[in-house]
């Protein structure tokens, strides 16, 4: 059992030497004083691993390698299985974007065509041309030879 201050000391001590020094009261004096009625009781049990012997087990190593290989293979297979779906997901998204872009371009084309038709409206042309625009007189209209197509043009006065 120990106090909060002791707990801080234990946490702050870091190395075993420090801990020993702290326990012996020889460490640097940065410890907090125990606050009244602020005791925290921590039970510390020391474990001694010095007698534990490490044994090399080849069978265990093979099992581990097999497990890792299996996991990797399964991962590859899973990726291989998911990849087409993923690609199609990406492709469909791309297609959706292209489709939206196409729709937008079609709409813009419609706007441009509408504007063009509005500007080329005969009424509008007459307004712009003012007195300079009038229907040609009958004698002013000539026709090319039929072999070249019946194209009307204006004869210069």
């Amino acid at each position: 059992m120990t106090s909060l201050a002791a707990l801080f000391d234990w946490l702050a001590a870091g190395s075993p030497e420090g801990r020993t020094a702290s326990r012996n009261g020889n460490g640097t004096d940065f410890r907090l004083r125990t606050l009244p009625k602020e005791d925290i009781h921590v039970f510390v049990k020391s474990i001694d691993n010095s007698t534990v012997i490490r044994l090399v087990d080849n069978k265990d190593w093979l099992r581990s390698a097999g497990m890792a290989g299996g996991v990797m293979l399964a991962s590859v297979m899973l990726i291989a299985l998911l990849m087409p779906g993923g690609f199609s997901l990406l492709a469909s998204r791309q297609m959706g974007q292209l489709n939206a872009e196409r729709e937008q371009l079609i709409n813009e084309l419609r706007q441009v065509r509408s504007r063009e038709a509005e500007l080329l409206n005969p009424k509008q042309l007459e307004v712009w041309a003012g007195p300079n625009f009038h229907n040609p007189t009958a004698a002013a209209v000539i026709y090319a030879a039929p072999a070249q197509g019946a194209v009307a043009s204006l004869r210069k006065p």
């Binding site: 229907n135 040609p136 007189t137 009958a138 004698a139 209209v141 026709y143 039929p146 019946a150 009307a152």
Partner: peptide, 19 residues
């Protein structure tokens, strides 16, 4: 008729004079 025939580029079939 004069306008329609002109726009449709129908060749004239009478002497060209403005009546």
């Amino acid at each position: 008729a004069a306008t329609a025939l002109r726009v449709l580029q129908v060749p004239k079939d009478e002497p060209e004079k403005d009546i």
